[in-house]
Design a protein around this nucleic acid. Structure first.
Lengths: 355, 355
DNA sequence: GCACCTTATGTTAGCGCTACCATGCCGACA
DNA sequence: TGTCGGCATGGTAGCGCTAACATAAGGTGC
């Protein structure tokens, strides 16, 4: 941001301002502003002249001044709970990048409050901090408390990665159902018929969607889902490990395990190894999300990739649109449901069952 | 930022400004500004009163106004290579937080270029983007290329987590030597005598420091280091796995493995499990860094914790100081070497050797 | 011709903050 | 007693930009 003058005055005459351009063309700064911002009511001729000057002088609008003067310049609150640090890292990267481009400010706030009261206090603090909108990565994206307070305060929000679209709030997500369906089909195509499923955290709708995708894929392949082969998990390594242990201790253990996220897949593999089973020879395992946690697992795990960074960028965009919409129309625009493409990442944790 | 008024005027009186605080305390805005910016020439009493009001009103300085007015408003470049996403996540959190407090802008740039030329191009791009200083987390913190270009362009930089202080560049780090020494001593205190060591990436000085700490601790305990029990690794899961396999295949395998980072520790545990060994009953394993990757490993791994977020905050601070120093004195201040405290995190991967 | 739009531009007044200078106070030193 | 230098504070101006309100020049309709 503009190097300081070393002699006197406030700033070195180093940065071209809107006034320089105006003088150069012989119009008022206001006209230049209008041209730069693509407003109407400017003669084509004038527009061209200004544009030319802009290029000639290499003028670039000062973002700080712009946002101070009341345009643009959102302050975006990012309320994060305790997703894996890995997820958060990728998410932040995307969000930060896009905020930079849109010259928005990112304000972080951690929210791992247990009770509703503390949760509301944190949200309030974020808003007091001047956030114009809030982005909610999982698992906060579905906390009713948070949403209620946000709606009450009339603050736009974007939920990231809920299992299903929300009625009152924009969201970016992948199609968890479809992804789970594809992943299951992938297992089936390898000849697996006795496939177990470790469910995700019951509070997140994504869990249910993934289960639904699994069930439908099994049904469509005319495979029976054995009740005891569907166990509860909580998206943690430990719950995956315990769930898999339960599954593998059965008289007729599954030949493949579908874990609802990568952490649990890692747990399942660990459980298999503890029983002396080889993955994928004796047991196939798939995960979900493609988090970097998989770097600590051998063999490399087949999973569903969520484009987290891209989703963060989209979240920022959606928030922008929402805020601008409100500014123009005076009321909240209808919630957008943006579904992005996932992809199936085939790695080494799936093989044909031994029979 | 700042909600727009729906009635008239430019802006709603909704965001607390420096004037609100001033009025609340009964001083001039100037005094508030001084307090907020930690300048001198403010009575302690006044300072406290202002601080209290700031907290009470939940005042946060408007970054745009600040940088417009010509103050501060650094643009900090964060050049990241490919550390683990988990590390980056924690790091970003700290850096972002502190940048917010100091109202600096964080500009990210990825740099995983293989060759020197591409690397230089990326650095150049970052500088063209207007970065006033650069933060270099590992592994870039020690890339000679990057440093050379930065020095040449006279851009201040802060290296994070190099093994040793750099002659020409400020840095934040832990004492890798001491930490490794302590960790080794910890293993020895459990009765281990045949301890193996998996080295880190040869390009990073931290690797050598950790090895040195290990060696000295062994020597001070009058334990012999067997040459074949020290193997090369590259800070990756796979290299840890392969290294451990080599170690465990020996006629007289070690009772404990010191892996130079967590990824390799995870690999070592995986290798042990594949051989049917129980950790920690048959083999103790320790890691280094306390990255979230350990969440995907069972049992919980004893390791050295680096306060990554805190180190990021310090890095931002150091960069500030450097830039301000240059502004005042006109030349670069002597490089600071800031060593922060690590801690030994005892978990479940260490036990007494079976004998 | 006069009201009345539409288009194209200029003027004014800040946004919130801080650099810079001015002020008044104190004690110290001659 | 006067004056000087350090302290603690206030006043003023202005960073670069853009809402909001003028203003002015050309239509159009009756």
């Amino acid at each position: 941001m503009a190097r300081r003058a070393q002699t006197n005055g406030r700033r070195a005459r180093e940065v071209v301002t809107i006034n320089d351009v105006a003088r150069h063309v012989g119009v008022s700064p206001m006209t230049v502003s209008r041209v730069v911002n693509g407003e109407k009511y400017v003669r084509e001729e004038t527009r061209k002249a200004v544009m030319a000057a802009v290029r000639a002088l290499n003028y670039a609008p000062n973002q700080a001044a712009r946002s101070l003067a009341g345009a643009e310049g959102l302050r975006i609150g990012l309320l994060y709970g305790n997703p894996s640090a890995a997820y958060l890292g990728e998410f932040l990267l995307g969000a930060l990048d896009q905020s930079g481009r849109k010259s928005a400010q990112l304000v972080l706030e951690k929210c791992d409050a247990a009770d509703a009261k503390a949760e509301r206090a944190i949200v309030r603090r974020l808003l007091a901090g001047g956030a114009d909108g809030v982005i909610l990565p999982p698992p906060l994206c579905e906390h009713a408390n948070v949403h209620a307070l946000l709606t009450e305060k009339n603050v736009p929000a974007v939920a990231v990665s809920p299992g299903l679209p929300l009625a009152h709030c924009a969201c970016v997500r992948i199609n968890d159902y479809k992804a789970a369906y594809e992943l299951t089909t992938h297992l089936i195509s390898y000849g697996h018929t006795r496939i177990a499923f470790i469910k995700g955290h019951p509070d997140q709708t994504a869990s249910a969607e993934r289960l639904r995708g699994f069930e439908d894929a099994m049904r469509d392949a005319n495979l029976e889902i054995q009740k005891p082969l569907v166990v509860q998990g909580f998206f943690t390594f430990r719950s995956g490990l315990e769930g898999a242990e339960k599954l593998l201790a059965r008289p007729k253990p599954p030949t493949a395990i579908f874990a609802s996220n990568d952490d649990m897949a890692a747990g399942a593999i660990s459980a298999a190894h503890r029983r002396g089973l080889d993955v994928p020879r004796d047991l196939s395992v798939v995960g979900f999300d493609d988090t970097p946690i998989l770097a600590a697992v051998w063999p490399a795990v087949t999973t569903i990739r969520q484009p987290v960074a891209q989703m963060a960028e989209i979240a920022v965009d959606l928030l922008f649109r929402d805020v601008q919409g409100r500014k123009k129309t005076g009321h909240a625009p209808p919630p957008v449901d943006r579904v992005v493409e996932h992809s199936l990442v085939k790695r080494d944790s799936v093989a044909r069952p031994k029979r």
